[in-house]
Design a protein around this nucleic acid. Structure first.
Length: 271
DNA sequence: CACGATACCTGTAAGC
DNA sequence: TGCTTACAGGTATCGT
């Protein structure tokens, strides 16, 4: 499920359930996701009050009054289930709140990860320390991408998905932003002008903002805590639409493989 | 250093 | 119907 807009949607959905509330107990039902769960997760969180919720790139952040932060990454298949009627084999962590809600971290592929760290160490955490800036930060320089791309030989789509360049862009929104900017995903960065990169960065901001407003994209999973589906997938113009007509010119959308990931683009509109 | 390939894990859908 | 294969929203790590 989760790129930046989906993680943002999840954290917003968690706010009314968690913000200002105490956690009664937390249970890890297995010792690891992608990596081992932190030592003493349950005891360290039991009784703690949630003071803030946030997001950095694709990582969700839950701050507590014990000056610790739960870092949550949903990987490819992770999601949060609210009050499921029963727990299954892929329900790995359960958080129970003082109001009786049970939040379940569900992740069949277990590419996700969880850690719990001191708040003062957050920026130095190995998952966060090397992340690039937030694409929706109003203070982001309009030519950030253009500068990061200068002289690079990588395909522009691979650059967009490099979390050290910008945090939170994944396979869907990289394809969508490139379509809007009219840039072919396989084009080498150094063969794209600064002006076009500025346009790409703008397109990226638009796509992300629109998706968040729609509750994210629900491809295989629910994006929202409430169980409601985000419906930005209905607005996707090229992602997952191989062979279907380009919404702009009607030419069939082409699927290719860049950096090992499926890419979608219109060969006529994107150069 | 920059980049591509591979590995991790399970479920689902397509192909034969 | 059943078996096999390819692929899925991510990221760390290992080659070249």
């Amino acid at each position: 499920m989760p790129e930046l807009p989906e993680v943002e949607t999840v954290m917003r959905g968690l706010a009314p359930l968690l913000l200002g509330r105490r956690l009664l107990w937390v249970e890890a039902r297995r010792g690891d996701l992608r990596w081992p769960l932190p030592e003493g997760l349950g005891p360290r969180l039991a009784g703690a009050r949630v003071t803030a919720l946030g997001r950095r790139g694709k990582y969700g952040l839950i701050h507590t009054d014990r000056r610790e932060v739960l870092i949550l990454h949903l990987g490819m298949s992770g999601r949060i289930r609210l009050d499921p009627p029963a727990l299954g084999p892929h329900d790995h962590v359960v958080l129970a709140t003082e109001t009786g809600a049970r939040l379940v971290v569900h992740d069949p592929r277990r590419f996700g990860a969880i850690d719990l760290v001191g708040a003062s160490d957050l920026d130095r955490h190995r998952w966060l320390a090397h992340l690039g800036p937030e694409p929706l930060d109003p203070a982001l320089a309009p030519d950030h991408l253009a500068r990061a791309a200068a002289g690079r030989r990588v395909a522009v789509k691979a650059l967009l998905m490099d979390q050290r360049v910008l945090a939170g862009i994944g396979n869907i929104y990289a394809s969508e932003a490139l379509f809007r900017a009219g840039i072919a995903p396989g084009r080498a960065c150094r063969r794209i002008s600064a002006v076009r990169f500025i346009r790409l960065q703008q397109a990226l901001g638009e796509v992300l903002t629109e998706s968040i407003a729609a509750g994210g994209s629900s491809l295989r999973d629910h994006a929202q805590i409430s169980g409601a589906l985000g419906d930005y997938q209905l607005h996707l113009r090229v992602y997952g639409r191989a062979g279907l007509p380009c919404p702009s010119c009607g030419a069939p959308v082409r699927r290719s493989r860049i950096g090992g990931r499926s890419s979608f683009h219109c060969p006529r509109c994107q150069r």
